[in-house]
């Protein structure tokens, strides 16, 4: 069994045994290529009452290489309106890039990071270059193929 599979299986066992943190739910994990989780931010925040879905995609190099993580955008789920989240669901967060990712991170720890990213948002706004990225530049289907530049150290 590949290392990535064994590692994901252990993460799944942990989730099923210990449960997920508050506001995070496992929606679907029936293979070792892609998982879906939902996150919501509880308490008094800009996204109160909204539930978002995250799609994780893993390659055979996981956890050495980062998973491809994006918000699900479909008829039911929308990407949160946030300065680091593009309308196609792509997320600009350093821990998801090759520089910021560390193999000790896990699916749940990524969810927690994104949850806190939403929790500390100060305004509901798309990234300033949203149209440029999503429409004009024909953003790649996989966010890992985009090289993001991280400006903001606050969240």
């Amino acid at each position: 069994m590949a290392v990535s599979t064994r590692r994901l299986q252990k993460e799944l066992t942990e989730i099923k045994t210990n449960g997920t943190p508050v506001g995070i739910k496992l929606l679907q994990a029936d293979n070792f290529e892609s998982w879906f989780l939902s996150i919501e931010v509880l308490g008094d925040t800009l996204y109160q009452g909204e539930v978002f879905a995250l799609k994780f995609r893993f390659d055979s190099q996981y956890p050495i290489s980062a998973p491809a993580v994006q918000f699900v955008v479909d008829d039911y789920y929308k990407a949160p309106v946030h300065p680091h989240v593009y309308s196609n669901g792509h997320i600009c967060a350093s821990i998801l890039g090759s520089e910021g990712w560390s193999p000790v991170l896990s699916v749940i720890s990524v969810c927690i990071t994104l949850q806190s990213m939403l929790a500390f948002a100060k305004e509901r706004k798309r990234p300033p270059d949203n149209d440029g990225y999503v429409i004009r530049a024909r953003a790649p289907e996989n966010p890992k193929k985009t090289r993001f530049v991280y400006h903001d150290d606050e969240v």
Binding site: H90, C92, Y150
Partner: peptide, 12 residues
Amino acid sequence: PNEGPLSSPISV
């Protein structure tokens, strides 16, 4: 630096 775009993608 704080007023600029928070993030910007540059393709590979």
